[in-house]
């Protein structure tokens, strides 16, 4: 009886799955941008635990990304922004599942993502470096993380960078990273670094700079960054109906970049300006 029960459940699940698959033909939607203008609302996904790009202050999502979004949305008057805050791991899959119209959170450029999503022009430098405890003298350069426990965010481009670096270390020296720990968000990795369970956190130097300003007593950055030069983008869907919306954001980002407004915002949020290509989406470096 037990087996038959299990079997009937299996059937149920797969029938449900098949039904979903059958009915999941893309809805007849001409153009997402038109719909957004017509409805007067755009739904945007953000991981608001990624300071200084996007985080929450006094109950509102603020940061570098939010400032850019506001400036760009000024070009689409009358449209209300509904910005959802959810864990990083749900953001790109949720975009594919049409839970949101667009993603305004720092999306590192990778080959897989570029294949699957329409990544915008870059918004900031996303090169990955290492954070360590200030008191830890055993790590002076990136190679020193061989044999150590290093943390980063699950499903992030930082994780991919770290895995590539681990493979490189193994290839060249025969000894890779001791263990890679994957966290739901970076703040937990920082907490664990502080607690001593891990010896380093792989994170983008754009985030690490401002962090050090606040927590320079506890943490330090390991120079130089170990990852290849990379950038953060925003993301839309690749389907044709999203093309005009992605184009709209691309134009907005390019305009902010050329006018120097982007550098101004970088000074405000990061304390330094970055070189970010304004003409095309860089090819993925990993």
């Amino acid at each position: 009886m037990f087996k038959s029960l299990l079997f009937s459940r299996l059937c149920l699940i797969f029938v449900t799955g098949a039904a979903l698959a059958a009915s999941s033909a893309p809805p007849a939607r001409a153009d997402l941008l038109d719909d957004i203008k017509k409805n007067g609302k755009i739904t945007i996904a953000t991981e608001a635990r990624f300071p200084p790009f996007e985080f929450v202050e006094n109950g509102k999502i603020v940061g570098y990304g939010r400032d850019m979004l506001d400036l760009i949305m000024a070009r689409m008057p009358g449209v209300k922004v509904e910005q959802l805050d959810l864990p990083w791991q749900g953001i790109l899959p949720g975009l594919a599942a049409k839970k949101f119209d667009f993603v305004v959170t720092s999306v590192g450029i990778t080959k897989e993502r570029a294949d699957k999503y329409a990544l915008t022009l870059p918004i900031a430098d996303g090169t990955v470096g290492l954070l360590k405890r200030k008191s830890d003298t055993a790590i002076a350069k990136p190679e020193d993380i061989a044999g150590k426990v290093v943390g980063t965010q699950a499903g992030s481009s930082h994780l991919k960078t770290l895995q590539d670096y681990d493979a490189k270390l193994k290839r060249e020296t025969g000894k890779g990273v001791g263990q890679i720990k994957e966290y739901i968000d970076f703040n937990e990795a920082f907490a664990d670094l502080g607690a001593g369970r891990i010896q380093a956190v792989a994170h983008s130097i754009s985030n690490l700079g401002p962090l050090i300003k606040q927590r320079g007593d506890t943490f330090a950055v390991v120079e130089p960054p170990f990852g290849p030069r990379n950038y953060f983008s925003w993301a839309g869907r690749k389907e044709p109906d999203s093309a005009t919306l992605v184009q709209f954001f691309n134009e907005g980002i390019a305009e902010l970049n050329r006018s120097g407004k982007m550098k101004e915002l970088q000074q405000k949020w990061f304390g330094f300006a970055m070189d970010v290509p304004a003409d095309k989406v860089p090819d993925p470096v990993m």
């Binding site: 996904a45 608001a48 635990r49 990624f50 300071p51 985080f55 929450v56 202050e57 109950g59 959802l84 805050d85 959810l86 864990p87 749900g90 968000d185 703040n187 907490a191």
Partner: peptide, 17 residues
């Protein structure tokens, strides 16, 4: 986890700052 800013999420947002 599905983007509702409840008590726990506010707690997480506050720890992020």
């Amino acid at each position: 986890v599905i983007a509702v800013t409840d008590l726990l999420r506010v707690g997480q947002q506050v720890t992020a700052v």
